[in-house]
Design a protein around this nucleic acid. Sequence first.
DNA 1: GGAGTGACACGGA
DNA 2: GTCCGTGCCACTC
Length: 107
Amino acid sequence: MTPFEKRVVELVRRIPPGKVTTYGLIARAAGLPRGARMVGWILNRRKFSPDLPAHRVVNRHGLLTGKMHFETPTLMAQLLRNEGVPVRDDRIPDLDRYLWIPPQTDE
DNA sequence: GGAGTGACACGGA
DNA sequence: GTCCGTGCCACTC
C-alpha cells in the first residue's frame, strides 16, 4: 500500500454520488500527473470494494473503460444510471456536466 | 538487467 | 466527434 495508492483510494471514496471523475484528474490530485495508468492499475488490484466506488471513475472521453473488470459488463453503467448519471453506449455524453474535480491531497 | 503490458492522457490529422 | 503515435509509472515475466 503505497502513499499514492492511499491517496487514490481516498479520492475515489470522496467522489459524491451522481458525479464522476477521470483517471487523469485523480492521478494529478494524488501527486502523479502522468500516473493516470497507475490509477487503473490500482483499482484493478483493489477490484470493486464497497468502499471504493470505482464505477465513478472513467477515462477522459467519458468512456466506461473499466466496465469489463466488474462483476458483469453492465454493472458499471447500471450503478451510474442508478445515481442519476446518464450512460449512453458505455459512455457519458455530458461528462463535463457530471465531472467532479478531486481536491489536492498531495500536501 | 531488458521487454511487454495496462480500467490513460495528450497532440496532431 | 474519430483514429494514431508517443510518453508515462509500476508490475510481471
